[in-house]
Nucleic acid binder design. Structure first.
Lengths: 248, 248
DNA sequence: AAATTTGTTCGTATAATATGAACGAATTCC
DNA sequence: GGAATTCGTTCATATTATACGAACAAATTT
């Protein structure tokens, strides 16, 4: 299945801003042969994953991924329901707000509202992150069973990202206890040197943790007073979302 | 590049509702061997395109496509900008509203607002449609050059979908002329037997056609009066969007 | 409890890909 | 403006990955 993996690897090279790339450029980046890269690109193009501009002879990301996203309909519903609540929260806090769900022991943002703030703590959509080092993940972890927590730690470990990352299981469990008591999590520079985030749990109808709502700020902006305000707003927003999710 | 194509084919079998499938099921559907299908699924899983549930031993769509969509940032901006305008339009008309863009001679919906109407004219995200048979496409075509129109007809032809589909070039050009005069397009049962849609042009800063805003209804609901109201609302909405797009 | 179906692994025949070469076209350099 | 370089594309063949059947365990159905 090497060919498939190589094709998917090509898609990953399209980083941002509908950037376009040529055959040789991609081949060099991945250490592939120019000729086989060309063939892979044709297949990706035919399936709509990339778009070819014949005037520049360069490729950029296509719309097939959007098609696939459109098929995740249950999760799409959740996104639609959460959006207005998230927008309000983002407006009130003037920060980026994300909706995250648990997927195979990691947290993935499936919806992001971007603030107007000129320094923004960017949250990439669809990218899996470890649970132990971010507010969005810690609050999910707090509501998992001890067995599930053990499995996740066994699978991914507790990798260190900054000096403040929690890397010992005992310390993590204590933190998860505190989170469960207070009903929200906070991460100060545990994943990146400038980021501070808050997160609030989202449950399904059966009261099983399914994700989190998170507010993403920076260490400079997050003083004690602001934190208190964000906690209030975040709790209100997540409770509202949880109430709606109980009804449907 | 057969392996790559096969892998991508597998993704297409996940139709709706986060439906999950087993190895044999997928293999049968595509006529692949059980064993190689298994290998392909592993690769797709490792890259996040599908998710494996070990309790049911079935696969469903993953979140990698969402990640890829997140990278289409310019086009994402357009979606964010258009959303509130589309929501208002959808609310006013109580119909599904779509934002469509021109990609390689076909129209793709990159944003859809769903109405509360219990019979809805569903618009799939990310799926390319021919231009000549739907309102969303015809209005785009109307603002293309004759050379571009010729190329598109040459490439895709004018396939017939219903008795009302325009299949002759002369007739199509006449229709495109009318559209350019009135500033919007309408398709009555030209693509499906029940669908009626209206569409309004969206231009970029350089006044080049880039897509359309469309209202999707059914033949039963769309009487003369309703049509007039939708045209008014649609023109207002698209003009507002075009104004914003000129500024940024 | 037996029978069937399903998921997974393995070895080898077979078919697909990797690679270098080659060429025209586009682009860059002088 | 012409030479030199880079780039995209195609082709033939050596090499390598995949397809396939077989086999088995686990789950599911009968």
């Amino acid at each position: 299945m090497k060919t498939l993996r190589k094709g998917l690897e090509i898609l990953n090279t399209f980083k941002t801003n509908s950037q376009s790339q040529g055959v040789t450029e991609i081949a060099k980046k991945l250490g592939f042969h120019k000729s086989s890269t060309h063939g892979l690109l044709q297949a990706l193009k035919d399936e709509g994953y990339i778009i070819y501009d014949s005037s520049t002879r360069k490729y950029s990301l296509g719309y097939k991924p959007l098609d696939l996203v459109g098929r995740i309909s249950y999760r799409k519903d959740l996104r639609e329901i959460a959006r207005p609540i998230m927008q309000e929260l983002s407006k009130k806090c003037d920060e980026d707000v994300a909706l995250n769900i648990l997927v195979e022991g990691r947290s993935i943002s499936i919806n992001v509202i971007e603030s107007q703030n000129y320094i923004r703590h960017i949250i990439p959509l669809g990218k899996p992150y470890p649970l132990h080092c971010r507010a969005a993940g810690k609050v999910i972890m707090a509501y998992l069973s001890e067995k599930e927590i053990d499995e996740i730690i066994k699978r991914y470990g507790l990798p260190k990202f900054t000096p403040k990352t929690i890397t010992r299981k005992g310390k993590l469990l204590a933190e998860l206890g505190r989170i469960k008591t207070s009903g929200y999590s906070i991460s100060r520079q545990e994943f990146g040197p400038e980021g501070v985030s808050l997160a609030f749990p989202i449950f399904n109808r059966d009261k099983i943790i399914m994700g989190s709502l998170s507010i993403h700020s920076t260490v400079n902006r997050m003083d004690k007073e602001t934190e208190k305000r964000f906690v209030d707003e975040g709790l209100k927003a997540s409770e509202r979302l949880n109430q709606i999710l109980e009804l449907i």
